[in-house]
Amino acid sequence: MTLLYLVRHGQTEWSKSGQHTSFTDLDLTPEGEEQARALRPRLDPSEFGLVLSSPRLRARRTAELAGFSNYVVTDDLQEWNYGEYEGKTSAEIRAEHHPGWRLWFNGVPGGETADEVRQRLTRVVRLVRSSGVDKAICFGHGHASRVLALCWMDFPLIFGQAFPVETASLSILGREKESWAMLRWNS
Rank of each mutant, 00 (worst) to 15 (best):
E166P: 03
D134C: 05
G10T: 11
R129C: 08
G67Q: 09
D75H: 09
H9G: 02
R8A: 05
E31L: 14
P55F: 02
P156M: 07
D134I: 07
S131N: 05
P30I: 06
L121Q: 07
G49E: 03
E84G: 10
E178M: 13
L57H: 14
T21R: 06
E79D: 00
R37A: 13
W185Y: 01
D115C: 01
A162E: 09
T74Q: 06
Y5K: 03
G32A: 06
T12W: 04
W185T: 00
Q11K: 07
T122G: 06
G83F: 06
L170A: 03
P156R: 15
Y82R: 06
P30L: 07
Q161K: 11
H141P: 11
L52T: 04
R175E: 15
N186R: 02
F48V: 13
L127K: 09
S187Y: 08
R8P: 03
S53P: 04
V7M: 09
G10N: 09
F48N: 15
W180S: 14
E79C: 03
I93C: 10
G18H: 14
V147G: 05
D27Y: 04
F159I: 12
E96C: 07
P55Q: 02
R56H: 12
K135C: 08
L4C: 00
S53E: 02
H20A: 08
E34F: 11
E116P: 01
V165T: 13
L173A: 00
E92M: 13
A168H: 09
Y82W: 09
L65G: 12
D75Y: 03
F105V: 10
V108D: 01
L77H: 08
I158W: 12
N106H: 14
L170K: 05
K88C: 14
E47L: 12
Q11F: 03
S169Q: 00
L39I: 10
F159N: 14
R8M: 02
L57V: 12
S53F: 04
M153Y: 05
P164S: 00
E92R: 15
R94Q: 15
T2F: 01
H141Q: 07
S69P: 03
M182G: 08
G132Q: 06
V7F: 13
A59M: 02
P45M: 11
S145R: 03
W14H: 06
L26K: 11
G160D: 00
G49K: 02
F163V: 15
M1W: 05
L28P: 15
H143R: 04
P164Q: 02
R102A: 13
W152N: 04
H20Q: 13
G10S: 10
I93D: 12
W101T: 05
K16E: 12
Q11N: 07
S145W: 04
T74S: 14
S69K: 11
F48R: 14
Y85Q: 14
R129D: 14
N81D: 10
L170V: 04
G174M: 05
V133K: 01
P99F: 12
L148E: 01
E47K: 09
E166R: 15
S46C: 11
G67P: 14
G111T: 01
E112T: 02
P99G: 08
V133Y: 01
L26C: 08
M182T: 12
Y85D: 12
R184Y: 14
F105P: 10
W80R: 11
G111M: 01
E166W: 08
G10A: 09
L50V: 02
E31G: 07
W185H: 00
D44I: 10
T29G: 05
E176G: 09
D44L: 15
Q19A: 10
R126C: 07
L26Y: 08
T167D: 13
R42Q: 12
S169T: 03
